[in-house]
């Protein structure tokens, strides 16, 4: 039997209304053979975690452009832990200042992809770091 595809939830937490970046990444992951569950704009951390659990995903990939990353990204990690789902790989992207990255990584976001990152880099990172259940 063929190996099962990696399942990724692509989500836009927070209030900014720009999901071009998230859609480009979703499309790239699709072309890399992954199943991408796309949830749309303005998702709360609770909605993201609830969807991640029901969809039994391997990865949660979030994009933020509004500047609320320091609050929302760690909150998703925290809620996943609360649900005993901290085996899910969490990555983030968007307009995120260099200075914020170390603390986000400390909070459990495994990698941050800033503007200009080739999509291949994101794909490789996911393939290398995903924990298959």
């Amino acid at each position: 039997m063929a190996e099962r595809p990696i399942r990724v939830l692509v989500a836009k937490p927070g209030l900014d209304g720009h999901d071009r970046g998230a859609k480009v990444v979703a499309r790239a992951l699709r072309d890399a053979g992954m199943e991408v569950i796309y949830t749309g704009l303005r998702q709360t951390p609770e909605q993201i975690v609830s969807a991640a659990i029901q969809e039994d995903v391997d990865v949660v990939a979030m994009s933020i452009l509004s500047g609320a990353h320091n609050h929302l990204f760690p909150k998703v990690v925290k809620l996943l832990k609360k649900e005993n789902a901290d085996d899910i790989l969490v990555v983030g992207g968007g307009v995120i200042p260099e200075d914020d990255i170390p603390s986000l990584k400390e909070a459990g976001i495994k990698e941050i992809f800033t503007p200009g990152t080739p999509t291949t880099e994101t794909i490789d990172f996911i393939k290398k770091n995903v924990k298959r259940k």
Partner: peptide, 21 residues
């Protein structure tokens, strides 16, 4: 699912956001 790569975009949840929680 893509017949070429095996990947897919599953986008039906976009219309059901309120039900997630």
């Amino acid at each position: 699912t893509s017949p070429f790569t095996g990947g897919s975009i599953l986008g039906d949840r976009v219309r059901m956001s309120d039900l997630a929680t």
